[in-house]
Design a protein around this nucleic acid. Structure first.
Lengths: 324, 324
DNA sequence: CTGAAAGCGCTTACAG
DNA sequence: CTGAAAGCGCTTACAG
């Protein structure tokens, strides 16, 4: 049987009011040090833990912010976001709780189990859920809704632009026959298609031949594909992300294809391993710090009832290394 | 003003009981389809979202499990654990919520904001917090307490063993003059010291000379250190983790030191990039799947009031590649 | 400085 | 099949 504040009050010989005042350091009260210490000691002695539910019900709101993570593998950007959010929210007495969303479980169920003050979505929410949340006084930040584009959360609008940036860089360096190395991970399909689309579009616009598409498992050296590209006269490959690019690099090594001499490789993400690859990997760095800042600022704005800050303007950029 | 179930009842012209029965699909009730649909429609129409706090208070427990993550960068093992836990718990109607713990914020505060059914700790909890949680009917799983060793969570007991394993492998391959490449990340210090200690101990036991210690920034090629090792006659290096090892590998490349000919390198973690490095990195793989399974099984056991399952027996193992 | 009491929104015996 | 009512544990005016 859990210990309640009434138990503490009884054991300490004071009222529940006093217990509450002491335990919450309620300002404007004036409890004698002796009483105070006695209550504290009694609570510790009984192993009292307050009921978060009762507290939240009484106060009409919780001190929780829930961040919903999409059902796909997240990268370094998300880690940056979570750390920053956790710190910023802690400063206002709020706790960030992260939920790894599974498509098998409707989010509606989640809100029956926890009512946060704000929901931060890095993924797309069904419009009706969005409406229900807002109506229930729960603010929603960062979750793409159909109204504002319909695409998954963070910087998702610019997925095509990332592919375009890769092509722009390769084209400027004189590469003409591009290939695309995409990921086999089905959960990333939406992103992969947008990036691929960006590459294709940019090629068409630059008058380059239509790039061929290959699926590259990020776990193993992609020697076979590299050989095929080599045969087909492909001179550069735009990769879905750095993991895929590292597999291409390893494949080129295994196949004896020189990088960038016979095949240029550009990645995406600028993970730490990219700078350490052989050769060091040219890649695209997204402004993750700026994105994290913006999301954190949005949450703050919502909490303060202020208008949302303008989106981050810092663009993604090419980090030029030796692989192109 | 949030919509309550009373609002829905009033708008639908039924009692709160009926609303509750319909919304919760309470078994053993028999509501006409017409009433049912009407209530559902009304609730959707008003944008009703139930109060998780009231529900939890009434039922005496929540459907939440909170996992507390330590204040240091987590690797692939933790991701495996979280995914598995999320899935397993979903099957019993529970939600996993992850909190990234900051040492600036006592956990005690967290339990005021959320009362989970079970707490899964991948980090060390203060003993008195542990006691308070248990007394409050909240089970705690996986958090090292002073009683059982006092060290951070998952497999932490075996950090020394990991270092020993590295030495065992290097020694078996005839390497004699070892160095240790450790991480500059202060949050990992506790782990780093244990692993270093394991390496030292194993060297002493094997009659190898005391290894020298260098700090290697995992972001940049460690050419300077490699040159020094080369001068000092070091023939093998045990790295804190794969990221550090990749920096050593890149440094060796930059310094023109052949791997493994003049310097053998062994990492730790077996991240995907390890297999793709040049040369492919020999490393230590921890049984993360088994560890995840065990933690998940422990949570299940606790939920069912059964005794904890025995620890995972699968050992960490050396993944031999070309760098040693 | 402390106590008695109301009420947050929900679920669930219980009575009809 | 539906309604009136109690009570989960807390905080906070309010009265003393």
């Amino acid at each position: 049987m859990p210990v309640t504040s009434a138990d503490v009050a009884r054991a300490a010989g004071v009222s529940r009011t006093t217990v509450s005042y002491v335990l919450n350091d309620t300002p404007g009260t004036n409890i004698s040090t002796a009483t105070r210490d006695h209550v504290l000691a009694t609570a510790a002695d009984l192993g009292y833990a307050p009921s978060a539910a009762a507290r939240a019900l009484r106060r009409g709101q919780s001190d929780l912010v829930v961040c919903v993570l999409p059902d796909w593998p997240t990268g370094p950007v998300v880690d940056t976001v979570l750390d920053l959010l956790t710190d910023n929210l802690a400063r206002r007495g709020l706790f960030l709780l992260v939920h790894h969303h599974r498509s098998t479980r409707p989010l509606r169920e989640l809100w029956k189990a926890v009512t946060p003050r704000v929901v931060v979505g890095l993924t797309h929410f069904p419009t009706e859920d969005l409406r229900a949340l807002r109506q229930a006084g729960i603010e929603v930040v960062g979750a793409g809704s159909v109204d504002d584009g319909g695409h998954p959360g963070i910087d998702a609008g610019n997925q095509r632009g990332l592919g375009e940036l890769q092509v722009e860089h390769l084209g400027a360096h004189g590469y003409r026959h591009l290939a695309i190395a995409t990921t086999p991970d089905d959960r990333l399909r939406e992103f992969a298609e947008l990036r691929t689309d960006g590459v294709r579009r940019a090629c068409a616009q630059a008058g380059l031949p239509e790039p061929q598409l290959a699926v590259v498992d990020p776990g193993v050296p992609a020697a076979e594909v590299v050989r095929r590209w080599s045969r087909d006269g492909v001179d550069a490959v735009a990769c879905y992300n750095d993991e895929v690019a590292l597999a291409v690099l390893a494949g080129a090594r295994a196949a004896g294809v020189e990088v960038p001499g016979r095949l240029a490789v550009v990645g995406l993400d600028d993970v730490p391993a990219a700078a350490l690859a052989d050769p060091p990997l040219t890649t695209i760095a997204q402004p993750s710090a700026a994105q994290a800042q913006h999301l954190a600022a949005s949450v703050e704005a919502v909490l303060d009832g202020k208008p949302l800050p303008p989106g981050p303007t810092e663009p993604s950029r090419v980090v030029v290394r030796a692989s192109t």
